[in-house]
Amino acid sequence: MNELKNKVVVIYGAGGEIGGAVARAFAREGARLFLTGRRLAPVEAVARDIVSAGGEAEAAQVDALDEQAIDKHLQFVVAKAGCIDISFNAIGNSPTSYLGASLVEMDLKQFIMPITSYIISYFLTARLAARRMLLNKSGVIMTVSAPPARIGTPNGGYGPSQAAKEALTRYLSKELAPQGIRVVCLQPHGMPETETIKEIFESRAATAGVTWEQFTAYLAGMNHPKRFMTLAEMANVAVFVASDKASVLMGTTVNMTMGALDD
């Protein structure tokens, strides 16, 4: 317990399943949380859960693609808490507009949408957090990618966007590690608890006459234990990576695919 005691954490996309699970796990380990999202209501719900369980969390509406909004919020965090120890980017977007679409037939706007949202958000939140962390020569910057970064699947620009996040993790680490700042990416496999997997099923598998049970069995069959990772398991790994016990993890993507991808 208390692996993150008194750590000041900012989470982007805290109203989503991954961001919310990480927030709750960080809170249980003693972190002081500043939760953000483009929509305030789901972020407030996570903050209420944390506070009711005895943790510390504040919610704010922040568009993680808006540089000025991010910067203003970080100014508020530093003024109130004194520093930023951990920045975690868990933003997402609906994949239904590009999943299964032909690259040959796809227009530029459709292709570049996930690339623009994911990589710009990660760049802005990481860069602006790093500027504060450099003052103390300490901090951890984290994000989440997905297996399509390394697997050829029909998902338009989504796979390239995740590969770009992993590359940016390495670039940021090369620059920031000598200054005491770790940059790490987590790569979980599909989790049925998330809305993204449900949207993928509804947009593709359901129309093909595949049941939810068949769809999830197919996904689970890709990894070694033939089962799904849970949000709780993912969040537990996130706690470790964010903690001082993972001090040697930097500039890398942590493979959490349970064997679906070989390193």
Rank of each mutant, 00 (worst) to 15 (best):
N2R: 11
N2D: 15
N2H: 10
N2Y: 06
E3C: 00
E3I: 03
L4F: 05
K5D: 04
N6G: 06
N6T: 12
K7Y: 14
K7M: 09
K7V: 12
V8Q: 13
V8H: 09
V10H: 03
V10I: 14
V10L: 08
V10R: 05
V10P: 08
I11S: 04
I11C: 05
Y12G: 12
G13P: 07
G13Y: 11
A14L: 09
A14D: 08
A14H: 09
G16I: 11
E17M: 03
E17Q: 15
E17D: 12
I18K: 07
I18V: 15
I18T: 12
G19F: 13
V22L: 13
V22G: 07
F26S: 11
F26R: 10
A27E: 02
R28H: 04
E29R: 03
A31N: 00
A31K: 02
A31M: 01
A31R: 04
A31F: 01
L33H: 00
L33S: 00
L35I: 06
L35Q: 01
T36I: 00
G37T: 06
G37H: 11
G37S: 13
R38M: 02
R39A: 02
L40R: 06
L40A: 13
L40P: 09
A41P: 02
V43E: 02
V43N: 01
E44T: 10
V46N: 04
V46Q: 10
D49H: 04
V51G: 01
A53P: 10
G54T: 09
E56I: 11
E56C: 05
E56D: 11
A57N: 05
A57K: 04
A57G: 05
E58A: 14
E58H: 14
A59L: 09
A60R: 15
A60E: 11
A60M: 10
A60I: 03
A60N: 08
Q61K: 15
Q61V: 05
Q61M: 15
V62W: 15
A64P: 01
A64F: 09
L65N: 14
L65H: 07
L65F: 07
D66C: 03
E67L: 07
Q68W: 07
A69P: 08
A69V: 05
I70T: 02
I70N: 01
D71W: 08
L74H: 06
L74K: 00
L74G: 02
Q75W: 05
Q75M: 04
Q75C: 06
F76W: 14
V77E: 01
V78Y: 11
V78S: 08
V78R: 14
A79N: 11
K80Y: 04
A81L: 09
A81P: 03
G82M: 08
G82R: 12
I84R: 05
